[in-house]
Simulated scan of single mutants.
Amino acid sequence: MSDLFSSIILGIVEGLTEFLPVSSTGHLILVSDLIGFDEDWTTTFKIVIQLGAVMAVLILYWKRYLGIAKDVVTFKLTPNKLNVFHLVLAMIPALVVYLLAKDFIKNDLFGPKPVLISLIVGGILMIVAARVKRKITAEETDDITYKQAFGIGLFQCLALWPGFSRSGSTISGGLLLGTSQKAAADFTFIISVPVMLGATVLDMYDSRDMLTSDRLVLFLIGFIAAFVVAMIAVVTFLNLIKRLRLEWFAVYRFVIAILFFIFVIL
C-alpha cells in the first residue's frame, strides 16, 4: 500500500476516533501495523495528524476560547468560571511527565502489544469510574474547581500510554472527582487543543530531522483528512460521549483488543 493512501486512511481513522474514549493513538498504531505503515518517522506522523482533528474542537468551541482569552486580557479570572488557570492546572501534569518520559513513550509504548494492554486497562478504569457513586459537585464546566482541574490533569497523564485514550482517562477522572459526564467531556475537549498543540510542537522539534519535504506532503494530507472527517463527525460524537455510559466504550475496547490479539498477534 502506498504511503499516500496510508496517510489518508490514518487521517480518517484519527478523525473518527479522536472524540471517543477508545484511543485515537491506539487505533492509529493498530491500523498502521495492519497496513504496514510503521517506520521510525511514522510515530511522529501519528502524533501530528491528531492536531487536524483537534482543530475541529477549536472551531467548535471558539466562543469558549475567545471568552477565556477575553477574561485574561480584562483580568476577570474567578474560580467559579472556567478560566485559563483551569486549563494550565490540567495541562501541567501531562506536560511534565511527557518531558521526563518522552523517549520511553515513543520507543517502548508505541507498539501493538502495549496498546492492547492499555485498551484493556483503560476500559477497566472507565467501568470503575462509571459505577463508583460520587456526589456531583460540577454539573457544568464552569462549576469545575481548580482542584478538580488539576486532578483531571493527573488522570490525563495516563493518556500518554497509547491506547489509554485522553478522553477516556480524563472523563473517568472527572467522574471520580465529582463532575458530571457532560462537564468532564466538555472540559476534556476544551483542554485537548492546548495539550495537543504543545505535544505536537515538542514532537516536531525533536523529530525535525525526519520532516523532509516529501514526508511533509504526507503529513499535510493526513492532517487534512483528519480535520475534514473530524468536522463531519464532531457534533454527533460529542453528543454521543455525553450521553452513553462509559461501559459501552469499555466493551468496544475489550472486543477490539481481543480480536486484534487473536487474528494478528497470535
Results as ranks from 00 to 15, higher is better:
172 S>N: 13
222 G>D: 08
221 I>P: 00
219 F>T: 03
179 T>R: 09
201 V>W: 01
169 S>L: 10
163 G>N: 05
197 L>P: 01
162 P>S: 10
175 L>Q: 12
186 D>W: 03
188 T>F: 02
204 M>N: 07
208 R>W: 05
176 L>Y: 06
208 R>C: 02
181 Q>T: 12
210 M>Q: 14
199 A>R: 06
165 S>A: 11
183 A>E: 11
194 P>W: 10
187 F>A: 15
225 A>D: 06
227 F>S: 14
176 L>G: 04
185 A>M: 04
220 L>Y: 01
168 G>W: 04
193 V>D: 04
187 F>G: 11
165 S>W: 08
170 T>R: 12
200 T>M: 12
199 A>F: 05
183 A>R: 14
175 L>P: 09
221 I>W: 01
170 T>Q: 06
227 F>V: 11
220 L>C: 14
223 F>L: 13
188 T>R: 07
192 S>K: 08
218 L>E: 01
177 L>H: 08
211 L>C: 04
185 A>L: 14
193 V>L: 15
161 W>K: 00
188 T>E: 06
164 F>Q: 10
220 L>K: 06
188 T>S: 15
204 M>Y: 01
214 D>C: 01
225 A>V: 04
163 G>H: 03
162 P>G: 09
224 I>R: 02
209 D>S: 13
210 M>C: 00
178 G>I: 05
226 A>R: 06
162 P>N: 09
191 I>R: 02
